[in-house]
Amino acid sequence: MSALPAARAADTAAPAVRCRELTKSFTGAGATVHALRGIDLDVPRGGMTMLVGPSGCGKTTLISVIAGILTPDGGECLVLGTELSTLHGQRLLDFRGRSIGFIFQQFHLVPTLTVIENVTIPLIINGTPTPHARAAAAEIIAEVGLGDRGRELPGVLSGGEQQRVAIARALVHSPALVVCDEPTSALDHESGQMIMALLRRFVSLRQATIIIVTHDDRILPFADRIARMDDGRIVGIDTEATAGGQR
């Protein structure tokens, strides 16, 4: 068994994400759910890491913590060299806005904004002047193969096309880390494969680190690393090429 080249290269550098003894629990309806029970995880810089595991094992909670959306109860979470627990309020928002891109299962494009307006949002939030933001958005929309659809509303696009817009939105401000939640589960097989190929291409081109939560076994061959979770814990890391030809 040999590790993938990208993963090997990344392993030599400081990790993009470093979690130690990370815990998170939720209390509701008289019961406490321990979603994370002491996560230890290193995600190397660059490359694509997938989090897999059964429903309710804590995958989504873990990427929410890594993305700075949820605050852990305990442990450490170093993201891109910054301990998230030291960031609060505006600094945390600024960090998220600059450094992290998001891709969601349901795309979450604003339906009343055009494709290009949706893609400009991260740049606008980061204070990029509108003309520059629109130019950058147009460029990346063309890169994802939707150059002629910029003025259309998301509602007229297919699921695969909407996810490509979401990818453009996640990457337009060149974040160092992109978190994806089930990016292919709302898509058919062909669209899913196309989206994954696109993501892989951007990983290579932009040197971004991508963490993907997925149930979709068909996309596992695209991964550089696979972190297997169960019951709030990392139970295994695969760094072997399970389908290296896909990359």
Binding site: A67, I69, Q90, L93, D94, F95, R96, G97, R98, F102, F104, H108, V110, I121, P122, I125, N126
Partner: peptide, 11 residues
């Protein structure tokens, strides 16, 4: 959508 904007860093 507001949540997405907030996740992306909007105050």
């Amino acid at each position: 959508h507001y949540a997405v904007l907030k996740a992306m860093g909007l105050r």
